[in-house]
Amino acid sequence: MTTPLIEIREVSRGYDDGPPALRNASLTVAAGEAVAILGPSGSGKSTLLNLIAGLDRPNSGTVTVDGVRVDELGEAAAARYRRSRIGMVFQFFNLLDDLTVTDNVVLPAQLAGMARGEAHRRAAELLETLGIDRHARAYPGRLSGGERQRVAVARALMNRPALLLADEPTGALDTAAGEDVCGLLTDLNADGQTVVVVTHDLGLARSCTRRTIQLVDGRVSADLASEPVR
Protein backbone atom coordinates (compact mmCIF):
# COMPACT_ATOMS: atom_id res chain seq x y z
CA MET A 1 0.00 0.00 0.00
CA THR A 2 1.34 3.45 -0.99
CA THR A 3 2.14 5.78 1.90
CA PRO A 4 -0.26 8.78 1.91
CA LEU A 5 1.17 12.22 1.21
CA ILE A 6 -0.93 13.56 4.12
CA GLU A 7 -1.78 11.39 7.11
CA ILE A 8 -3.65 12.93 10.04
CA ARG A 9 -4.41 10.62 12.94
CA GLU A 10 -6.75 11.36 15.87
CA VAL A 11 -5.88 15.06 15.91
CA SER A 12 -7.45 17.43 18.42
CA ARG A 13 -6.76 21.14 18.83
CA GLY A 14 -8.33 23.49 21.34
CA TYR A 15 -7.76 27.13 22.22
CA ASP A 16 -8.15 28.69 25.68
CA ASP A 17 -11.42 27.68 27.32
CA GLY A 18 -13.56 27.37 24.19
CA PRO A 19 -14.71 24.16 22.51
CA PRO A 20 -12.05 22.27 20.53
CA ALA A 21 -11.53 23.46 16.96
CA LEU A 22 -10.75 19.86 15.98
CA ARG A 23 -11.91 16.69 17.75
CA ASN A 24 -10.11 13.42 17.02
CA ALA A 25 -9.98 14.15 13.29
CA SER A 26 -8.39 11.58 10.99
CA LEU A 27 -7.89 11.69 7.23
CA THR A 28 -5.42 10.76 4.52
CA VAL A 29 -4.65 12.31 1.13
CA ALA A 30 -2.71 10.44 -1.54
CA ALA A 31 -0.11 12.06 -3.79
CA GLY A 32 -1.78 13.43 -6.91
CA GLU A 33 -5.23 13.91 -5.36
CA ALA A 34 -7.32 17.08 -5.50
CA VAL A 35 -9.24 17.35 -2.23
CA ALA A 36 -11.54 20.00 -0.77
CA ILE A 37 -11.79 20.54 2.99
CA LEU A 38 -15.32 21.90 3.26
CA GLY A 39 -17.13 23.45 6.18
CA PRO A 40 -18.77 26.59 7.53
CA SER A 41 -17.03 29.15 9.70
CA GLY A 42 -15.98 27.51 12.97
CA SER A 43 -15.94 23.99 11.56
CA GLY A 44 -12.18 23.59 12.07
CA LYS A 45 -11.04 23.77 8.47
CA SER A 46 -8.64 26.71 9.00
CA THR A 47 -7.17 24.97 12.03
CA LEU A 48 -6.65 21.84 9.95
CA LEU A 49 -4.90 23.86 7.22
CA ASN A 50 -2.61 25.46 9.80
CA LEU A 51 -1.70 22.04 11.21
CA ILE A 52 -0.88 20.67 7.76
CA ALA A 53 1.22 23.76 7.01
CA GLY A 54 3.11 23.53 10.28
CA LEU A 55 1.77 26.90 11.44
CA ASP A 56 0.19 25.31 14.51
CA ARG A 57 0.52 22.11 16.55
CA PRO A 58 -2.18 19.74 17.75
CA ASN A 59 -2.87 19.10 21.42
CA SER A 60 -2.96 15.40 20.57
CA GLY A 61 -2.62 13.15 17.55
CA THR A 62 -0.12 13.14 14.69
CA VAL A 63 0.29 15.11 11.44
CA THR A 64 2.56 13.59 8.79
CA VAL A 65 3.10 15.24 5.40
CA ASP A 66 5.45 13.91 2.71
CA GLY A 67 7.15 11.71 5.30
CA VAL A 68 7.65 14.55 7.81
CA ARG A 69 6.11 14.45 11.30
CA VAL A 70 4.94 18.05 11.16
CA ASP A 71 3.56 18.04 14.71
CA GLU A 72 7.09 17.43 16.05
CA LEU A 73 8.81 20.30 14.21
CA GLY A 74 10.25 23.31 15.98
CA GLU A 75 9.77 26.79 14.57
CA ALA A 76 12.89 26.84 12.37
CA ALA A 77 12.33 23.31 11.08
CA ALA A 78 8.68 24.14 10.33
CA ALA A 79 9.77 27.16 8.27
CA ARG A 80 12.17 24.95 6.27
CA TYR A 81 9.41 22.39 5.79
CA ARG A 82 7.06 25.03 4.38
CA ARG A 83 9.73 26.38 2.02
CA SER A 84 10.59 22.96 0.61
CA ARG A 85 7.33 21.00 0.67
CA ILE A 86 4.34 23.36 0.85
CA GLY A 87 3.00 25.99 -1.53
CA MET A 88 0.27 28.23 -0.12
CA VAL A 89 -2.35 30.32 -1.93
CA PHE A 90 -4.48 32.74 0.09
CA GLN A 91 -7.83 34.42 -0.42
CA PHE A 92 -6.33 37.92 -0.57
CA PHE A 93 -3.19 36.99 -2.55
CA ASN A 94 -0.63 38.24 0.05
CA LEU A 95 1.57 39.71 -2.67
CA LEU A 96 4.05 42.50 -1.89
CA ASP A 97 2.85 45.61 -3.73
CA ASP A 98 6.30 47.23 -3.85
CA LEU A 99 7.81 44.26 -5.70
CA THR A 100 7.27 43.38 -9.35
CA VAL A 101 5.45 40.21 -10.34
CA THR A 102 8.76 38.45 -11.00
CA ASP A 103 10.24 39.58 -7.69
CA ASN A 104 7.15 38.30 -5.83
CA VAL A 105 7.43 34.93 -7.54
CA VAL A 106 11.16 34.43 -6.93
CA LEU A 107 10.94 35.37 -3.24
CA PRO A 108 10.43 31.78 -1.93
CA ALA A 109 13.40 30.60 -4.00
CA GLN A 110 15.60 33.36 -2.57
CA LEU A 111 14.58 32.35 0.95
CA ALA A 112 15.45 28.75 0.11
CA GLY A 113 18.90 29.75 -1.18
CA MET A 114 18.34 29.08 -4.90
CA ALA A 115 20.86 30.77 -7.19
CA ARG A 116 19.55 34.02 -8.70
CA GLY A 117 19.81 32.88 -12.32
CA GLU A 118 18.06 29.59 -11.63
CA ALA A 119 15.33 31.35 -9.67
CA HIS A 120 14.61 33.82 -12.46
CA ARG A 121 14.55 31.05 -15.07
CA ARG A 122 12.07 29.11 -12.94
CA ALA A 123 9.92 32.21 -12.42
CA ALA A 124 9.86 32.98 -16.15
CA GLU A 125 8.83 29.38 -16.87
CA LEU A 126 5.97 29.54 -14.37
CA LEU A 127 4.70 32.91 -15.55
CA GLU A 128 4.63 31.64 -19.12
CA THR A 129 2.90 28.40 -18.14
CA LEU A 130 0.26 30.33 -16.17
CA GLY A 131 -0.29 32.82 -18.98
CA ILE A 132 0.90 35.94 -17.17
CA ASP A 133 4.45 36.35 -18.52
CA ARG A 134 3.46 39.68 -20.14
CA HIS A 135 3.07 41.07 -16.60
CA ALA A 136 6.52 40.00 -15.40
CA ARG A 137 7.71 43.59 -14.80
CA ALA A 138 4.35 44.96 -13.61
CA TYR A 139 3.41 45.61 -10.00
CA PRO A 140 0.52 43.64 -8.43
CA GLY A 141 -1.64 46.72 -7.97
CA ARG A 142 -1.95 47.09 -11.76
CA LEU A 143 -3.32 43.56 -12.22
CA SER A 144 -6.85 42.18 -11.99
CA GLY A 145 -7.81 39.93 -9.11
CA GLY A 146 -7.59 36.82 -11.26
CA GLU A 147 -4.14 37.82 -12.52
CA ARG A 148 -2.92 38.48 -8.99
CA GLN A 149 -4.13 35.05 -7.91
CA ARG A 150 -2.21 33.49 -10.81
CA VAL A 151 0.90 35.31 -9.58
CA ALA A 152 0.22 33.90 -6.11
CA VAL A 153 -0.06 30.40 -7.58
CA ALA A 154 3.23 30.87 -9.44
CA ARG A 155 4.88 31.95 -6.20
CA ALA A 156 3.43 28.92 -4.40
CA LEU A 157 4.82 26.57 -7.06
CA MET A 158 8.26 28.19 -7.16
CA ASN A 159 10.06 25.57 -5.06
CA ARG A 160 8.23 22.61 -6.63
CA PRO A 161 6.23 21.74 -3.49
CA ALA A 162 4.81 18.29 -2.87
CA LEU A 163 1.55 19.92 -1.74
CA LEU A 164 -0.35 23.01 -2.86
CA LEU A 165 -2.67 24.40 -0.15
CA ALA A 166 -5.31 26.88 -1.34
CA ASP A 167 -7.25 28.76 1.35
CA GLU A 168 -10.52 30.14 -0.13
CA PRO A 169 -8.62 30.86 -3.39
CA THR A 170 -11.62 32.38 -5.18
CA GLY A 171 -13.15 34.20 -2.22
CA ALA A 172 -11.94 37.67 -3.30
CA LEU A 173 -12.67 37.20 -7.01
CA ASP A 174 -15.66 37.81 -9.25
CA THR A 175 -17.39 34.81 -10.81
CA ALA A 176 -15.43 34.76 -14.06
CA ALA A 177 -12.04 35.15 -12.37
CA GLY A 178 -13.01 32.53 -9.79
CA GLU A 179 -13.86 30.04 -12.53
CA ASP A 180 -10.53 30.83 -14.20
CA VAL A 181 -8.56 30.13 -11.02
CA CYS A 182 -10.60 26.98 -10.37
CA GLY A 183 -9.75 25.76 -13.87
CA LEU A 184 -6.09 26.52 -13.22
CA LEU A 185 -6.10 24.39 -10.05
CA THR A 186 -7.80 21.56 -11.95
CA ASP A 187 -5.18 21.73 -14.70
CA LEU A 188 -2.34 21.72 -12.19
CA ASN A 189 -3.81 18.64 -10.55
CA ALA A 190 -4.17 16.95 -13.94
CA ASP A 191 -0.42 17.48 -14.37
CA GLY A 192 0.21 15.65 -11.08
CA GLN A 193 0.20 18.41 -8.46
CA THR A 194 -1.43 17.42 -5.18
CA VAL A 195 -3.96 20.12 -4.29
CA VAL A 196 -5.92 20.70 -1.07
CA VAL A 197 -8.53 23.47 -1.21
CA VAL A 198 -9.99 24.81 2.03
CA THR A 199 -13.39 26.42 1.49
CA HIS A 200 -16.94 26.96 2.71
CA ASP A 201 -18.17 26.96 -0.91
CA LEU A 202 -19.68 23.65 -2.03
CA GLY A 203 -19.69 24.85 -5.64
CA LEU A 204 -15.93 25.49 -5.54
CA ALA A 205 -15.32 22.10 -3.93
CA ARG A 206 -17.28 20.32 -6.64
CA SER A 207 -15.78 22.37 -9.47
CA CYS A 208 -12.07 21.88 -8.88
CA THR A 209 -11.57 18.77 -6.74
CA ARG A 210 -12.43 15.09 -6.99
CA ARG A 211 -13.02 14.50 -3.31
CA THR A 212 -14.68 16.51 -0.54
CA ILE A 213 -13.98 16.06 3.17
CA GLN A 214 -16.66 17.81 5.20
CA LEU A 215 -16.00 19.14 8.70
CA VAL A 216 -18.72 19.87 11.24
CA ASP A 217 -17.84 21.10 14.74
CA GLY A 218 -14.26 19.92 14.39
CA ARG A 219 -15.10 16.40 13.26
CA VAL A 220 -14.91 14.74 9.85
CA SER A 221 -18.59 14.22 9.01
CA ALA A 222 -18.30 13.00 5.40
CA ASP A 223 -15.68 11.97 2.84
CA LEU A 224 -17.17 11.96 -0.66
CA ALA A 225 -15.65 11.29 -4.09
CA SER A 226 -16.93 13.16 -7.14
CA GLU A 227 -15.98 14.26 -10.63
CA PRO A 228 -15.16 17.97 -11.06
CA VAL A 229 -17.97 20.03 -12.60
CA ARG A 230 -16.54 22.32 -15.30
Rank of each mutant, 00 (worst) to 15 (best):
T2H: 14
I6D: 12
I8T: 13
G18W: 00
P19T: 11
L22I: 03
S26G: 14
T28S: 15
E33W: 10
G39H: 01
S43D: 05
S43E: 05
T47A: 00
L51M: 10
D56E: 15
P58F: 05
S60K: 12
S60T: 11
D66C: 13
R69I: 01
E72L: 14
E75T: 15
R80F: 06
R80K: 09
R83T: 13
S84R: 15
L96T: 11
L96C: 09
T100S: 15
T100L: 05
V105Q: 03
L107V: 06
A109L: 09
L111S: 08
M114A: 11
R116D: 15
A119F: 12
R122M: 03
E125I: 03
G131R: 03
I132E: 12
H135R: 13
S144F: 06
M158T: 11
N159R: 07
P161T: 09
A162L: 08
L163D: 06
A177R: 00
D180M: 11
V181K: 01
V181N: 07
C182F: 08
L184R: 02
D187C: 09
D191P: 06
T199I: 11
T199V: 09
A205M: 07
I213N: 01
Q214F: 00
G218T: 09
G218W: 04
R219F: 01
A222T: 07
D223H: 07
